[in-house]
Simulated assay, not measured.
Amino acid sequence: MVTVKMLKPYYVKTEEKYIRIILAYQYFSIIMNKKVYQFIPVKSTEVRINRKTKKIENVDDVFAFQKGKEVLTISMSQLISIPGFLEMLHRIAESYYLPEDSQEVSEQQKALDQVIAEMEYENVRRLIDKAIDNDDKETFLELTSALNNQ
Rank of each mutant, 00 (worst) to 15 (best):
residue 109 Q to P: 00
residue 64 A to Y: 05
residue 130 K to C: 11
residue 100 E to M: 14
residue 52 K to R: 14
residue 2 V to K: 13
residue 40 I to G: 15
residue 74 I to H: 07
residue 126 R to V: 01
residue 36 V to P: 00
residue 91 R to E: 15
residue 60 D to N: 08
residue 118 E to T: 00
residue 143 L to D: 08
residue 18 Y to T: 11
residue 43 K to C: 09
residue 22 I to C: 03
residue 127 L to R: 09
residue 19 I to Y: 09
residue 83 P to L: 05
residue 68 G to M: 02
residue 35 K to F: 06
residue 38 Q to K: 07
residue 49 I to F: 10
residue 139 T to L: 10
residue 122 E to M: 04
residue 76 M to T: 04
residue 135 D to T: 13
residue 2 V to T: 07
residue 15 E to A: 04
residue 67 K to D: 13
residue 42 V to F: 06
residue 138 E to Y: 14
residue 67 K to W: 03
residue 62 V to S: 06
residue 48 R to P: 00
residue 13 K to P: 00
residue 133 D to W: 01
residue 79 L to M: 14
residue 62 V to P: 10
residue 51 R to A: 05
residue 109 Q to F: 13
residue 125 R to N: 11
residue 58 N to R: 04
residue 78 Q to S: 10
residue 65 F to R: 05
residue 1 M to G: 11
residue 80 I to F: 05
residue 50 N to I: 07
residue 143 L to N: 06
residue 63 F to M: 09
residue 82 I to W: 06
residue 67 K to N: 14
residue 106 S to E: 14
residue 119 M to K: 15
residue 8 K to N: 12
residue 121 Y to E: 15
residue 76 M to E: 03
residue 93 A to D: 10
residue 37 Y to W: 11
residue 33 N to T: 00
residue 106 S to D: 14
residue 95 S to Y: 13
residue 43 K to D: 13
residue 132 I to V: 13
residue 44 S to N: 05
residue 49 I to S: 06
residue 50 N to K: 10
residue 125 R to V: 02
residue 131 A to G: 14
residue 40 I to F: 12
residue 104 E to Q: 12
residue 14 T to I: 06
residue 89 L to G: 04
residue 39 F to V: 07
residue 146 A to Y: 08
residue 69 K to Q: 13
residue 65 F to A: 06
residue 52 K to Y: 12
residue 144 T to C: 08
residue 109 Q to I: 11
residue 46 E to Y: 02
residue 16 E to M: 00
residue 28 F to V: 02
residue 111 A to C: 02
residue 30 I to G: 03
residue 12 V to T: 08
residue 149 N to K: 09
residue 150 Q to E: 08
residue 16 E to P: 00
residue 55 K to M: 02
residue 55 K to L: 01
residue 51 R to I: 03
residue 125 R to Q: 14
residue 90 H to G: 07
residue 97 Y to W: 03
residue 85 F to Y: 11
residue 69 K to S: 13
residue 77 S to K: 14
residue 78 Q to I: 01
residue 96 Y to N: 10
residue 144 T to W: 03
residue 94 E to F: 15
residue 132 I to H: 07
residue 37 Y to M: 11
residue 35 K to D: 12
residue 97 Y to I: 00
residue 148 N to P: 04
residue 136 D to C: 06
residue 43 K to T: 05
residue 4 V to L: 02
residue 3 T to G: 02
residue 94 E to P: 01
residue 143 L to Q: 06
residue 141 L to V: 13
residue 23 L to F: 02
